[in-house]
Amino acid sequence: MSIQQKDRRSRPRPGKEPQLTRESWRVFQIMAEFVEGFEQLAQIRPSISFFGSARTPRDHPHYGLAEEIARLCSDSGFSVVSGGGPGIMEAANKGAYEGKSPSIGLNIQLPKEQSGNPYQDISLQFRHFFSRKVMFVKYASAYVVLPGGFGTLDELAEILTLVQTGKTREIPIILVDGQFWSGLLDWFRHSLCEAGTIDPEDLDLLQVCNEPQEVVDAIFSHYEHRGFEPSAAEQEMLLEL
């Protein structure tokens, strides 16, 4: 193949320029999501991020459990951050809304399932999962993870990876309802650890709680000998998140 032929094949094909322009301009949309998120959430510390299924009905025990945990956290001085949608997200926002501290929803535009719940003091809208994920992590003093599906597992894996690799500070990561999570934890222990893909000590990043007050106590226990605000070293770490 001649140099001329290579050059001709590497040129943008007709019709590609408008698509490239659209992609380039999307950078500003992404920047706007980050800027608004930083401005809105920087003042809500300490906060706790809640996760769980959008499909959980209001009469399900997990809904009531999430609502009670969030209310206790809110009354204890923690802002509560959820995905802003229905199910467990709604329960968390509702509990916080009835408590003393702010209720925040990080809403995502989806083809189905996601619709904003009415229990949000601060409501942010996102098109991109990755910018929304940063907001969940950046200002969180703890993660409370109730039963959920792929989205919940995605968020759980995200925070575990960031803490494990030292890309964010170590915070309480609490799984609620030990029976629900037992199969996953057994798989971590007997498949991942035995295969050497994680270290046994990595399991110590997780805690399992079943009762609402147990969750709050676990969070306070973690911070018993330090403040909720990140240290200077942790602040530098979070700047590069």
Rank of each mutant, 00 (worst) to 15 (best):
V208I: 10
L153K: 08
D202L: 00
I122C: 10
Q164T: 01
H222P: 01
I198V: 09
L162Q: 11
A142W: 12
D121Q: 15
W187V: 14
R132S: 03
S123V: 15
L175G: 00
D154C: 06
Q235D: 12
F126V: 11
H222I: 01
V137S: 00
D121V: 08
L146T: 07
S182C: 03
P212M: 11
D186G: 05
I174P: 02
I198H: 05
K167H: 07
L206H: 10
R127S: 08
E229K: 13
V216H: 12
E240L: 03
P230C: 11
L124V: 03
E234I: 10
E201S: 14
R132H: 08
F150Q: 14
H128R: 15
A218E: 00
F150S: 12
T197P: 00
A142M: 11
E240C: 01
R226S: 09
I171V: 05
R132A: 09
A218R: 10
H222G: 02
G227A: 12
F228K: 06
P230R: 14
L146M: 13
E224C: 05
P200G: 09
R226P: 06
Q179M: 03
G196D: 04
G227N: 02
F130V: 11
P147Q: 09
A140H: 08
K167S: 03
E201D: 11
A195P: 15
I173R: 04
F126T: 13
F188D: 02
E214R: 10
G183A: 04
E155W: 05
V163W: 11
G148H: 10
E201C: 04
D217P: 04
E170N: 15
H225S: 13
Y143T: 09
L156H: 13
L185Q: 00
W187D: 00
V176A: 01
G149L: 00
Y143L: 07
D199A: 05
V215S: 13
P230N: 12
T152Y: 12
L160T: 14
G166T: 07
R169S: 04
Q120W: 05
I122D: 07
Q235M: 13
S131W: 13
R189M: 08
F228W: 10
L156W: 03
Q120G: 00
D204Q: 14
S123Y: 02
K138G: 05
L156I: 07
I219G: 11
S182K: 15
T197K: 07
D121Y: 07
V215H: 14
W181Y: 12
A140Y: 02
E201L: 15
Q125L: 15
E234W: 13
E201K: 07
H190V: 10
Q120H: 12
T152M: 12
L162S: 08
T165A: 04
Y223F: 11
G166W: 07
V176H: 01
C209A: 04
V215L: 13
P147Y: 03
C209S: 11
G196T: 09
T168W: 08
E194D: 06
D154M: 07
F180M: 13
G227L: 12
M135K: 04
C193A: 01
P200T: 05
L239E: 15
Q207M: 01
L184E: 14
E234A: 07
L124F: 07
E240H: 03
H225P: 02
A195V: 02
G196A: 10
L175D: 06
S123D: 14
H222Q: 05
F180K: 02
Q179N: 03
F220L: 13
R127P: 02
V208Q: 03
A140I: 12
P118L: 10
D217G: 06
